[in-house]
Design a protein around this nucleic acid. Structure first.
Length: 938
RNA sequence: GGGCGGAUAGCUCAGCUGGGAGAGCACAGCCCUUACAAGGCUGGGGUCACAGGUUCGAUCCCUGUUCCGCCUACCA
């Protein structure tokens, strides 16, 4: 009786669901921290709770799953920690938008209620991305799923904050920071995206105070900020202006008189007019230039938190004020320019392109904004983090990213960690209501003149704490003020940058600050798999925090994977409508095909251009495996017992060849995985399974399989066939987990048993052992011998094709070999040649001569002749070919001449020319073919 | 401005330490041969961007040039 029957083509849907449930139920994903053994651990880059699975996650998770499954099958104590990130600003924005739809205002709702809403939202939607990972087949330890705002992780955050504060590595300061006027919060430097935009460069003439007829012209892209100017700067060595330093100008549109200062850093002699307006409250360079002055230049803030002009700019002319107050900065620009023009101060306007900073969450133009914020002092944290990479304790793949890392780390600036939003880890700092009373009451509006009116007053959750208040920083809310003993406190309203908690992820998820068994077993993790765009946001900060808290870097390797783009190479985005949805792909082609596609394209250092055609190609591969397995199963009895001894004995050439090839592949795969060359792994498997196992070995084994049941040759073929399939499935499993499990489970028990892992006892391929190459079986000589057999078969098939000999027609072939030895080798394999090239008779020898009428094929070490007598009349055939060649040559000449004629090409309709061109090509191809056939006839 | 990466068949890309130019898709011809038409067999197609250099030998190493991406920066 033949073996188990499989359906004719692979149907992924039911298979995937069934096996994922099975794996979960068996608990294969769960890691046992007490199990011992060499650990292998990965923490997932936690996706935002707001997210839904996009193709980048799919790639990222597939690669992690490959490593994790590989490690697990290789017997390592394997843990993959999943989880999600609370994504402060992003999530707050999402929920806020949802509330707006319900006509609810966040401020009206109040802080506590709003946070409750966010948690509700998280409960409903926060698990979405996680469940999508399951469809991808991700073998995460779901029992250890974490969220960055879990109690444990929040405790870790407070612990680190307090420790850093106590060491002076966290401080509060009033600085010019990046401010998003839409999100109403500070941003760190890297949260600002720069984009080049076309703008104007305005030249404005400022009249000198002592003689209004003399004017100093400045150039600016932001004329509206002139209302906040507190100086004009020139280069101290500029012969044009250096004598003006120390004098003053009268600022147009205001009653303000500001000094002309010299600053060699701020002013570039070559650029613009050589004179720069200085607005310290609205430009980072100007701010620094202002600080360089003794005494420092005053700061005049002219914008509120929504980037609108404040109504009470000092010294402003009343009529100007009337027109401009409360206008958004961009509108104010037009108004100011118009007024300057009217009053004759605008000299000229030029086109000018420059980069503009935008909020990475909402793309709003970011404004420099003076305000009290919390910062991490990064220099001393960065030093050891640079060192571990320099010393190779942390290695990047591909290595080139280390430069990017060094570049940033060596120029690192202090990290602004406070955010003026509500969703996130509240900063563990409190202020005594009694000691800081006055400061708290009057604190609103600190950071710039005129901001007070922009902030709804009186609510705790929008209070700005003055910079001179004294924070009490500790893990829990203080009971008693250490200074006055008062028991009433106000907590700092700010929350922490989302990336602060992400930075702790590799150890906070394992139970830190407690000394857990998990930390001991799995920290540091083995490898981090992520994308280059968060090297600064996340990778660098994890290394700093890992070293600070754990005294050891959080991972040994960092694999930076490609960015997935669309077929045209454009970034996928919803607005472009070019997004490929992983879930749709999975529905359409199956998870395995999708995963294989991602893997096959995951070459290091290059972006992936994704298209459905490619996935389709690998869907076909899945189907190929399926059908090959069907064939094998048809030829195996369900109670089949492999004759294992045969595998090490002298078996047929084909058997030894496929075993040698398989072990070669297996060796390549081990190396590829160790080097994170995922694409090499995929192509090795593809090439071997399809083009060696299916195309050749399956065909070669057919004669043996047709032998009597129980015969030695049949048994050997069955054994090798099953063994190679079973091993290939295990090799493939990390990439294609579902189909491999489905087929593997259908194999006869004794075949499966060969791959049995210690843990699984043969009940799942997931816990079987990962194949290790047996180098003894790799045999170059065998591979060479087989290559010759294949070459001869190919040569004969080639002749058949060129001569148009029907596949069903049996023919003869003679092979003239160069040496007797080769002849003997070939003789042994003659049945392969007979079968695969459908021969009636095959003669092999050194003495063979070319028959009178025969086609010839030349290969390494031999010549192949196919006598054509009786098949076709040679002289007649030759005549026919020659005639056809002559005829087609004439046509070619005609077309060639026609197309060489300039007049024709230029004047004839395009379509006609194109048609003729392609015809010419077609003729040429035909002639080539005829010539080849003629040549073959000799 | 600085840095990184890319340029190989019509398209998308492999090609790891210098010696064979490759794969998939597309294309052409022949085949429904009982694993698979989502398939089989066969075939056409490339000045490895350009110019120099090193070498017995260069797609690969070095120098320069051009074009295309990306990252980064305080170019008012």
């Amino acid at each position: 009786m033949s073996g188990k029957e499989l359906p004719k083509s692979y149907e992924p849907k039911s298979v995937e669901e069934r096996w994922y449930a099975f794996w979960l139920e068996k608990g294969y994903f769960h890691a046992d921290e007490n199990a011992g053994g060499e650990p292998f651990s990965i923490v997932i880059p936690p996706p935002n709770v707001t997210g839904s699975l996009h193709i980048g996650h799919a790639l990222n998770s597939t690669l992690q799953d490959i490593l994790v499954r590989w490690a697990r099958m290789s017997g390592r104590n394997t843990l993959w920690v999943p989880g999600t990130d609370h994504a402060g600003i992003a999530t707050q924005n999402v929920v806020e938008r949802q509330l707006t739809k319900e006509h609810i205002d966040r401020h009206a709702l109040g802080r506590e209620k709003f946070i409750e809403k966010v948690w509700e939202w998280k409960k409903v939607y926060g698990g979405r991305i996680i469940s999508q990972l399951k469809r991808l087949g991700a073998s995460c330890d779901w029992q250890r799923e974490r969220f960055t705002m879990d109690e444990g992780l929040s405790r870790a955050v407070r612990e680190v904050f307090v420790a850093l504060y106590e060491e002076g590595l966290i401080y509060r300061g009033e600085r010019l920071i990046n401010w998003c006027p839409r999100c109403h919060t500070a941003l760190s430097d890297i949260e600002v995206e720069h984009e080049d935009e076309k703008g104007k460069l305005y030249h404005i003439a400022y009249p000198l105070s002592h003689d209004h007829n003399i004017r100093l012209t400045v150039a600016t892209t932001r004329p509206e900020t002139m209302l906040g100017d507190t100086a004009v700067a020139v280069h101290p060595l500029d012969p044009r202006y250096k004598d003006l330093i120390g004098k003053t100008i009268d600022l147009p549109l205001t009653a303000r008189r500001v000094p002309i200062i010299g600053d060699s850093v701020l002013v570039d002699l070559e650029f613009g007019t050589g004179a720069v307006k200085v607005t310290p409250a609205h430009d980072f360079n100007d701010y620094e230039a202002g600080q360089r002055q003794v005494p420092p230049l005053p700061l005049i803030s002219i914008l509120n938190e929504k980037a609108e002009i404040v109504p009470d700019i000092p010294d402003i002319n009343p009529d100007v004020r009337k027109q401009i107050a409360w206008k958004p900065a961009k509108k104010a620009r037009g108004i100011v320019v118009e007024m300057l023009k009217e009053q004759g101060f605008l000299v000229k306007t030029e086109d000018h392109s420059h980069s503009i900073g935008k909020c990475y969450r909402c793309k709003t133009i970011v404004e420099p904004h003076l305000s009290p914020q919390w910062f991490v002092k990064t220099v001393s944290l960065a030093q050891p983090a640079i060192k571990v990479v320099e010393e190779g304790k942390v290695q990047f793949y591909p290595k080139g990213w280390e430069n990017t890392y060094f570049d940033w780390m060596r120029n690192i600036k202090d990290w602004c960690i406070s955010r003026q939003i509500w969703w996130g880890h509240r900063i563990p700092a409190w202020y005594c209501k009694k000691c800081d009373n006055g400061i708290l009451e009057n604190s609103i509006g600190v950071g710039g003149v005129g901001e007070a009116s922009a902030i709804p007053s009186g609510e705790e959750n929008t209070t700005t704490i003055a910079i001179n208040a004294t924070p009490i920083v500790q893990r829990e809310e203080p009971r008693k003020c250490p200074r006055c003993g008062s028991t009433e406190f106000i907590q700092d309203p700010d929350v922490l940058d989302t990336w602060f908690s992400s930075a702790l992820w590799p150890f906070s998820t394992l139970g830190w600050p407690d000394k857990t068994k998990e930390l001991a077993s799995y920290y540091p993790t083995s490898v981090l798999i992520t994308s280059f765009d968060i090297i600064f946001f996340w990778v660098a900060r994890m290394i700093m925090m890992g070293l600070y808290c754990m005294k050891e870097a959080p991972f040994r390797h960092v694999y930076i994977h490609a960015l997935v783009r669309d077929a045209e190479g454009l970034k996928m985005s919803k607005s472009k409508g070019n997004v490929i949805d992983p879930l749709v792909m999975i529905d359409q082609y199956g998870t395995d095909a999708f995963r294989f596609t991602l893997t096959a394209f995951a070459a290091q250092g290059r972006d992936i251009k994704m298209s459905t055609e490619r996935i389709e190609g690998y869907r076909n591969f899945a189907n190929k495996i399926w059908n090959a397995s069907r064939f094998v199963l048809m030829n195996l009895e369900q109670d089949f017992v492999p004759n294992v001894e045969l595998l090490t004995k002298d078996t047929s050439l084909a058997d030894r060849w496929i075993l040698s090839r398989m072990n070669t592949m297996s060796k390549n795969i081990q190396q590829a995985l160790a080097d994170y060359r995922f694409n090499d792994m995929a192509s090795s498997l593809y090439q071997f399974i399809w083009h060696e196992y299916c195309d050749w070995y399956l065909e070669l084994s057919k004669p043996a399989l047709n032998q009597e049941r129980g015969s030695a040759s049949r048994s050997a073929a069955q054994t090798v066939l099953a063994h190679v399939l079973e091993t290939s499935l295990r090799l493939l499993h990390p990439i294609m987990p579902f189909i491999t499990e489905e087929i593997w489970q259908s194999l006869p028990e004794k075949v499966r048993a060969r791959g049995r892992g210690a843990r699984g006892k043969g009940e799942s391929i997931m816990v079987s052992s990962y194949p290790i190459a047996d180098e003894k079986v790799i045999n170059a000589e065998i591979e060479q011998d087989m290559q010759m057999v294949m070459d001869i078969i190919l040569a004969i098939r080639n002749i058949r094709g060129e001569m148009n000999i029907a596949p069903s027609m049996q023919i003869n072939a003679n092979v003239k070999v160069e040496t007797e030895e080769l002849g003997e080798h070939l003789q042994k394999s003659s049945s392969y040649v007979m079968t695969l090239s459908r021969l009636k008779e095959l003669r092999i020898g050194v003495e063979e001569r070319k028959p009178k009428s025969a086609a010839t094929g030349v290969i390494k070490g031999a010549e192949v002749y196919v006598p054509l007598e009786g098949l076709l009349d040679l002289t007649q055939e030759r005549d026919r070919l020659q005639k056809e060649i002559a005829k087609i040559s004439k046509d070619i000449d005609i077309f060639f001449k026609k197309l060489s004629n300039k007049d024709f090409v230029e004047k004839a309709p395009k379509a006609v020319v194109e048609k003729d061109t392609s015809k010419l090509e077609e003729f040429k191809v035909k002639r080539d073919k005829l010539e080849r056939s003629l040549k073959m006839l000799g």
